[in-house]
Computed example of a mutant assay.
Amino acid sequence: MKTSNLVATAGVILSALLNPSWADGTSETMQAESTTINIAGHEVPVVRGGLYDRYRSNPPLSVIESEAPDVDLSWFKGLQKERVDIGFESYSPNFYYKNSRVTAIFTADLDKLRELMPAEVLEQVQPLQVWPGRGLVALTAYAYHYCDNDSYNEIGLSVITNRPGSSNFGPLTLMTQAMSSNFWGYVLKLPVNTELARVRGVVGYNLPKWLTGIDYRETDKAVVVEILDSETGKVDVTLETRKLSELSSKPSMVTNSFTNVDQTGRLTTGYAISRQLGHASSTSAESVNLTLTEGSLSTYMKALKLGRMMKYEYVPEFQSALYSPKPL
């Protein structure tokens, strides 16, 4: 099998890396009346009367069923939450009931990817080399329409890696991950558009989140995502992707795991399980249009020397459960 075919097979990579991992707030959320709560010493605005204000990541499913009767909760009924201390009291896993995402996987400069990963992480995982000098990054835009953290948008930029402690055979490792629907990565960037998502992600999940504007909208034929520069307020990155017509409605399960370093210097891993309810993919470069400017995130991405778009995933409907990180 050609290397490009192996990569295409593995495209579902890091759905929500984390998932995972993952942001908070749509424009509707940000316009709603807010109240302020304390999370690990941070004063955080949240939607007054929203799910997080009322239940702090542990809403009864009966409440979700009442407020969102169109959402299928059968999968969540088989999952058990537990109370955890992640720098503040919370519950794991965090539930994401109704969401959408688009993912584009590009080749990137392998040496640059290694340079951007901490030395202690590189001792356990390495970027997958798909051909000499080239690794892979996944750029994902998430719209969390309804979840334990109310609603929010998020952008994930992640290096695709091997599993900690396992051998790295490049395309063969990628194929193995694809066959098991169990993918691994290291999150480089994870901007979000609510302070709740930022604080929870940084303090609780050790993720590189910052607060900025993220507009995730749909037209008749496309999904258009605009990411603003947090310093200038101008459009920094624009991702426009095609809506694919031949959607599979057969649910598929994907696990996305990540390795990083917590605030005490310990290596940790976290993961998210996603239930994809509507999904399609393409390897056509015409499916994705990525526009970079002179903004900070664009400049960062240009340094990766992005190359060929290997796979595009259009997932208009998925559900997810994000588990809190644990020491590696």
Results as ranks from 00 to 15, higher is better:
Lys221Asn: 09
Asp148Tyr: 12
Thr293Lys: 09
Gly278Ile: 11
Met301Phe: 12
Thr259Lys: 02
Ala108Met: 08
Ser4Pro: 01
Leu73Cys: 06
Leu292Phe: 08
Ser21Lys: 13
Thr140Lys: 04
Val130Asp: 09
Ser248Cys: 05
Met117Leu: 07
Ala178Arg: 00
Gly265Leu: 13
Val202Thr: 04
His279Ser: 09
Val159Thr: 09
Asn182Thr: 09
Glu286Lys: 06
Asn289Asp: 12
Val130Cys: 12
Glu218Met: 14
Ala8Val: 08
Trp22Arg: 12
Ala143Pro: 04
Glu43Met: 02
Thr268Arg: 05
Asn94Leu: 06
Asp111Ile: 03
Tyr312Arg: 02
Leu157Pro: 00
Glu82Gly: 07
Gly25Ser: 11
His42Leu: 10
Leu79Arg: 08
Gln126Ile: 04
Thr268Phe: 03
Gln177Ile: 11
Glu231Ile: 04
Pro327Gly: 07
Trp131Gln: 15
Trp75His: 05
Arg198Gln: 11
Glu195Arg: 15
Ala68Phe: 09
Ser100Leu: 15
Glu226Phe: 06
Ala32Met: 13
Pro59Cys: 08
Leu304Pro: 12
Met30Gln: 08
Phe258Leu: 11
Thr103Ser: 09
Met301Asn: 04
Glu65Ile: 01
Val225Phe: 13
Thr299Ser: 11
Pro191Thr: 04
Pro45Thr: 14
Val130Glu: 10
Glu65Asn: 02
Leu267Ser: 04
Tyr142Arg: 07
Asn193Glu: 14
Lys77Val: 02
Val46Phe: 08
Asn99Leu: 05
Leu73Thr: 10
Val7Met: 07
Arg242Ser: 10
Leu239Gln: 00
Asp262Tyr: 06
Glu218Gly: 14
Leu116Tyr: 02
Tyr312Val: 03
Leu188Trp: 11
Ala10Ile: 02
Ser257Pro: 06
Val288Ile: 05
Ile37Gln: 08
Phe88His: 06
Val102Lys: 00
Val199Leu: 04
Met301Leu: 07
Leu297Ala: 01
Asn260Leu: 14
Ser248Tyr: 14
Pro164Asn: 10
Asp236Glu: 14
Val47Asp: 00
Asn153Trp: 03
Leu113Gly: 03
Lys189Ser: 10
Met30Val: 04
Gly307Val: 15
